[in-house]
């Protein structure tokens, strides 16, 4: 469900009054987007569900600090991204990062490293796209979280540069240059996984 600007403004007012019905509506409206973002950042469904819940709890607790300078959804994304960064650092410290923290799907991709490469190499293979996606999903978990953040926001969530600037708090030039480095890093990680250059 996508709320328009006016609906978001009214909802924010109700949230500030700690209107529980409004909060129920808010969670229902945004839970899929938040979960999607968090899941892509963390690569683990259980962690993502827990963290997405924490995102909404933070909103409930800190809605008074929302001044309406950005859209409610953008503000929510910013909270989600910050939570993700903190959780990734925490998981990193606990040494459950990477392979051990991946979903079964990603693990399966890892186990299938060889066959994936051979399938992607066949240009007319109908499964080519799907296999490339598997390799990309795996590669995404391997790149720097700051890079992953921008790829998730821009290429997976499809956000505009303006929104990414608000969410990340980065300058426009930094977003552009970092996104370029992120995509290059992803390309390198994919090619490393494939053991060859990306097929054109």
């Amino acid at each position: 469900m996508n709320l328009d600007v006016e609906a978001e403004r009214l909802l924010a007012e109700r949230l500030k009054r700690r209107d529980q019905a409004a909060f129920n509506l808010f969670v229902r409206a945004y839970q899929a987007r938040v979960f999607s973002l968090v899941h892509r950042m963390l690569g683990n469904r259980a962690e993502a569900e827990d963290l997405a819940q924490e995102v909404f709890i933070t909103v409930f607790k800190s809605i008074d600090s929302f001044r309406g300078e950005s859209r409610l959804g953008t503000w929510l994304y910013r909270i989600a991204v910050n939570h993700c960064k903190n959780r990734l650092k925490y998981l990193d410290r606990r040494m459950v990062k990477g392979h051990a923290g991946l979903d079964e799907e990603s693990d399966r991709t890892l186990a299938e490293g060889g066959p994936v490469m051979s399938k992607v190499d066949r240009p007319d293979d109908a499964t080519e796209g799907t296999e490339l996606e598997s390799v990309i999903r795996r590669a995404l978990t391997l790149i720097d979280p700051d890079h992953r953040e921008l790829i998730v926001l821009r290429d997976l969530e499809g956000l505009a540069y303006e929104e990414i600037i608000v969410i990340t708090g980065l300058a426009e030039g930094t977003v552009k240059s970092r996104l370029h480095r992120a995509r290059a890093a992803l390309r390198d990680a994919i090619e490393k996984g494939l053991g060859c250059k990306l097929p054109d």
């Binding site: 996606e133 997976l156 499809g158 994919i190 990306l198």
Partner: peptide, 27 residues
């Protein structure tokens, strides 16, 4: 060819996304 491969990677990211990008740029 390298650029096409680069675009293909970004397109594959788009296909993975819930809001898949159509040819017109709309989601």
């Amino acid at each position: 060819g390298e650029y096409r491969a680069f675009c293909k990677m970004i397109d594959a990211l788009g296909a993975m996304a819930d809001g898949a990008r159509s040819a017109s740029g709309a989601h």
